[in-house]
Each structure stands twice: as C-alpha cells, then as structure tokens.
Write a protein that binds this DNA or RNA. Sequence first.
DNA 1: CATGCTGCTGTACGATCGTTCAACAACGTA
DNA 2: TACGTTGTTGAACGATCGTACAGCAGCATG
Lengths: 225, 225
Amino acid sequence: MKSGGVRARKPRFERQLPQQRRQALIEATIECLKRYGHEGLSIRTISAQAGVSVGLINHHFPNKNQLIAAAYRHFNSELVGGLQAAVERAADSPRARMRAFLEASFCPPNLDQDVLAVWVVFWGLYRHSRLIQRVQRATYRGYVRLLRGMLTELLAQARAPQRRRPRRSSRAARPDLRLAAIGLTALLDGLWLEWCLEPGAFRPAEAVALCEAWVESLCRRAARS
Amino acid sequence: MKSGGVRARKPRFERQLPQQRRQALIEATIECLKRYGHEGLSIRTISAQAGVSVGLINHHFPNKNQLIAAAYRHFNSELVGGLQAAVERAADSPRARMRAFLEASFCPPNLDQDVLAVWVVFWGLYRHSRLIQRVQRATYRGYVRLLRGMLTELLAQARAPQRRRPRRSSRAARPDLRLAAIGLTALLDGLWLEWCLEPGAFRPAEAVALCEAWVESLCRRAARS
DNA sequence: CATGCTGCTGTACGATCGTTCAACAACGTA
DNA sequence: TACGTTGTTGAACGATCGTACAGCAGCATG
C-alpha cells in the first residue's frame, strides 16, 4: 500500500505519443520477424509482442502493409546509418575508413543469423509490393553512395602519388575498375550471406581480410594508371 | 461430331499415375511461387494452377509443408543437376570444366529474376521448418562436393608442373587456399544475387570473367607452393 | 472536481486459410 | 457389358487472417 489512502489502481494501459507508439510497433514487427519469420507478420502476433490490442495498429497505420514498409525503412536505415557512423568515427585516411566500413559490416548487429532471416522475409515481399520497392530504392541509394564514395577516395589517393594531374575525368572509371567495384560488392554480400548461413565456416576477420585484399589489388591496378 | 454415334462426352477429369500427378503438383507450386511469391503458397492457388481440385493435394501429399519441401527438393536438384551436367559436358581439362561450371551458373535458367524470387521464399522458410532444413542439407552437400572437386582438380594441376611429389597431404589445404575457396563461393553467389537484383548492371560474361580471375590468382598462389 | 480530447480496447465481420471426407467417376479387367 | 479399384471432386469444418468501429479511459486542462 503506497502513498496514503490514494487508490493505487494500476491503469489498464498507458497513453503514448503517436510517434513513440509508432516506433514501438515498428520494433515489435522486427522482433516478430526475428522470432517467427514470415508467420510473425500478423496483426495479432505483432500487437501481442508490442503489448497492445489488435485495433491499435490500424489506429497508427492505415493498414498492415504500411507498417511492414515502415519497419523495412527502419531496418534499412539502421544498417546504413550504422555503417556510416562507423566510417565517420574512423581515422581520416581513406584506407582506414574502408577498413572501418568492412569491420562494421562483419560485426554485430549486422552479422547475425536473425538479421539475415529478417532480410530474407523482406526480400520475399519485394517483387510483389510496390511499397517495399519504393523503400528499397530510397535506402539502397544511400548505401551505394557510401560505398562508392569510399572507393573513389581510395582510388584517387592510389593514383595521386604517380601523376599529379589525372589523365581522364575521374568520374568515368575505366571498365576494369567498374567491374572491380561490382566484384567488391558481390564479395562483401556473398561473404556476409555465407557467414550467416554457416557461422563456423570462417571468422569475421577473415572476411574483412578477403575484402581488403580485393581493395588492395584494385588500388594497385589503379596506380598502374 | 466425331467417330460416328459414339457419345463424345468429354471426361470431367483425367486420372493419372500418382508419380506423374505429384510431379505436376510440384511444378505448379514452383510456378505459383514465381508468379505470386509467398502468397502463391496456398492450397487453392496451387491446385488452380495445376488444374485440379483443392482436395487432390492432400491425397498425394500428407500436408502442405510436405508439398513445399518436395518442391524445394526438386528446385535444388534441378540446379545442381544442371550444373553437374554442364561440367560433364565440357572438355576434360580442369580449367575447361571450371569455365563450364561458371558459365552455367551465369546463364538461364539459373540466372533469372523469377528464380531468385523462388529461392528467397524458400530461404524465408528455412529457419522455422525442419523439413526445409533437411532438404537443404541433403542437396547443398552435392553442390559443395561439385565445386570442391573442381577446385582440388585445378590446384592439383597447378602444383603438378613444379614438384612431382606433394610436400604435404593434398587434403590439408593451406589456410589461404581454404580462404580463397570461401571467397570464390562468396563472389559467385554475390554476383549472381547482384545480377538478379539489377540485371542491367553488368553482363553475365563479366561475372564469369571476375570469377575466373579469382580462380587464376588462386592457381598462381598454389603454384608458388 | 468536472470536462474534452484522443489514444486505446476488444468485439464483430467477412474472407481465406489447411484439412477432412463422403460421394463420384475414369478406366483396367473379367 | 458389368464390376472393382482408386484417382479425383467439392462441400463443409474450424481456425485465423486484416480491418472496422463503437465505446472505454488516461490524462491534460480549466
């Protein structure tokens, strides 16, 4: 019994600001995806996870698909934001920034079997949901920009010591460099996928080493003009 | 009117052997996955696609999950079988066999957006279905054996010209070779994924070239003992 | 303490899901 | 032609889905 004679009746629910509640529902959605996969994507499962009633979701989101799209947007921007923060936290050298990027890619919370499971469910929705496609395009752009920015930094530095004035516009990368960039992305994604599927096969540091070796050979080729 | 006075009444359905019907249902399942994604995985959608009634599926399969697992098994073995056939069709040189493997990997019917969509749905089921996990383990083994076989062939040939008798057991590959094999798988899968997501980004032949360059540098390192 | 706004609850509804099963009918066989 | 086997149909069942909505109740305000 507390605070004198005042009735200590516990409220049956707590009102929250729409913004906070929306965020909680988004996080509950992702948690359900981690736990139950595609079957976790039901209004009742999500509302139970969030500790609210079934009706609340449609009070904050026009329909289920909008909630899922919002969760996808959140999940994407968490990834890109985390990588970007890691890069900005690193030293100023282009090589150190690339290393920070790679290490963040092969670290929790990104390197996680549950996280892969969530991605896979979202990818499964991609083909048949315009909402998901829109979110994908919007966030993937940030990822590509981040990675491409680091690569051009690196290549500019690799070329610089040899000749002061560039022979061509630096925007038009030579075809093998374009291919090498494509290969780096593929290697990165492939290693990430492989580790999540079979975490015992290799250590994260080894994945970083493989990617760095690729980048290094790329720089050597660039230096050879 | 045909064949004289005999009633030409069209039968309402055609009886088929269980084996044939099962196969037809499996193919209808995959077709539904290509068309409708995860939402295509319903008894009614699949039976409509196969042109049969809703009850027939449970006559040939104990339940829906068993049908899906059978479809997954079929899909997997089609992939591995196709790759294996391409390898065996190739010339006898290890390098030619590897090239055939890579070219088959970056060709229809494997290199297809619809096919990726089907894979993604299956992967989404993986975590929460023991049936799918069992099928995955059984078929993935064949894929790994095929790829590893070609790599050991290649490396054995690369080492042979230099020293006749191997210094160590050829089974215990040196750590960087093991890593390189992991990297090749990642590069292969990553490029495949990337192409399916964005078919315009590069040509299949370029993907083959990237993988072959990786294999070549791997052979060079092996030759250096 | 009374009032109003609105976040929130929870029942209800129609649609669709996987599965069951009794009846039907195609087709080999006698 | 009649029969028996069995592949096949399709209605029906209970469960669960997403959504709607009328009313409850938390909390700031006066």
